[in-house]
């Protein structure tokens, strides 16, 4: 089986990288952290104009009509760039839920929201009842919220938000108070179980992709620092105690990346092992990012602990996302559970 990204997918990533290099510098990320929303509306508009935001929206609604395999490279790049904008929730979680929403309510939701997503006017936040707070709730026009096994689509006007402290300055958290009603219901019962399971799998893959990008950046920053910083008359990267740590972190990232890509492929093709692959991806990506963050901090020494150094912008995202949508231990346990269930 030949599995490689095509020229278009690589070119899309290259263009996102070019945009991020200019519009998402560490100074821009800091500015976003200090802003009320945690991210920037003009940058979201630029991402929408490029086609990033509408990548999974069907062409009927003005999107690119592409899938998760096309999105995965962009999400990884978003992590590498440290983009503050809440892309995963909209691209990989919200849009596919709306696209597959059943019945009359489904087509109403699609025509009301999908073109607006592709145009850059709407962001989607997603919250499960098991979450104490919903990321990106403030600034989202539409919230997909689960309660008692039902999934509801609730416009921002119908929820009350209470901000909660967040580690990552651009991934803001809020407690969401809302009332389910027949008019907000998207799917319930057995059907909802499937929709929510698929949503969780896409979240594991999507967040995993961002984590791989974050981890990659952390290793790159630490490797650069190890070349620049001298001690005992030599760059510290020349010492085994430093370079082996960095190599270990890099190996972990390189192992996680193909697993995330595989999960994206399995999810987009409806592979029956998609859940297994998604959990493997999230477990490995979370571990990789956590190790990369720890190693990068160690290599940087005391300067890495300062607010002024850029390291924490990526490190905090690694920590926040490693815990989001199930941490590594949770997903490893799920992998075990799925494998045991497969035993004859």
């Amino acid at each position: 089986m030949h599995f490689a990204f095509d020229e278009d997918q690589l070119e899309f990533r290259a263009q996102l990288r070019a945009l991020a290099e200019k519009q998402c510098t560490p100074a821009d990320i800091r500015e976003a952290w200090a802003s009320p929303l945690g991210w920037s509306r003009p940058r979201w508009a630029a991402l929408a104009e490029m086609g990033v935001v509408g990548i999974t929206v069907s062409e009927e609604f003005g999107g690119m009509g592409l899938g998760l395999v096309d999105a995965v490279l962009l999400l990884e790049e978003a992590g590498r760039a440290g983009l503050p904008e809440p892309l995963v929730e909209t691209i990989a979680l919200g849009v596919p839920v709306l696209a597959d929403a059943p019945g009359q309510q489904g087509s109403v939701l699609r025509s009301r929201w999908l073109s607006a997503v592709a145009d850059g006017g709407v962001r989607i936040a997603v919250g499960m009842s098991s979450m104490p707070a919903v990321p990106g709730a403030e600034g989202a026009e539409l919230l997909l919220l689960e309660r008692d096994g039902e999934l509801h689509a609730v416009p921002a006007a119908a929820v009350a938000l209470t901000p909660r402290p967040a580690l990552d300055g651009s991934r803001r958290l809020a407690q969401v108070d809302w009332e389910p009603s027949p008019s907000t219901l998207v799917v319930s019962g057995f059907e909802a179980e499937e929709v929510l399971a698929a949503l969780g799998d896409r979240a594991a893959m999507g967040v995993g992709a961002v984590l791989v990008g974050v981890a990659d950046r952390l290793v790159a920053m630490a490797a650069q620092y190890a070349k620049d910083r001298s001690q005992f008359g030599k760059p510290i990267g020349s010492f085994q105690a430093v370079k082996h740590h960095l190599a270990d972190a890099l190996v972990r990232v390189e192992f996680a990346r193909p697993m995330v890509y595989r999960a994206a492929l399995s999810l987009s093709e409806g592979d029956r092992d998609a859940s297994l692959h998604a959990s493997m991806a999230k477990a490995m990506a979370s571990d990789a990012a956590t190790l990369a963050a720890r190693t990068a901090l160690q290599v940087h020494g005391a300067i890495g602990y300062t607010w002024e150094h850029d390291l924490h912008l990526w490190m905090k995202r690694a920590w926040a996302l490693a815990a989001a949508w199930g941490d590594a231990a949770t997903h490893r346990a799920r992998v075990l559970e799925i494998l045991l269930a497969k035993r004859p």
């Binding site: 278009d8 899309f12 104009e49 490029m50 990548i55 690119m64």
Partner: peptide, 9 residues
């Protein structure tokens, strides 16, 4: 401007 994905296609 940055080439849009639609422009690339």
């Amino acid at each position: 401007r940055y080439p849009s994905f639609k422009g690339i296609m």
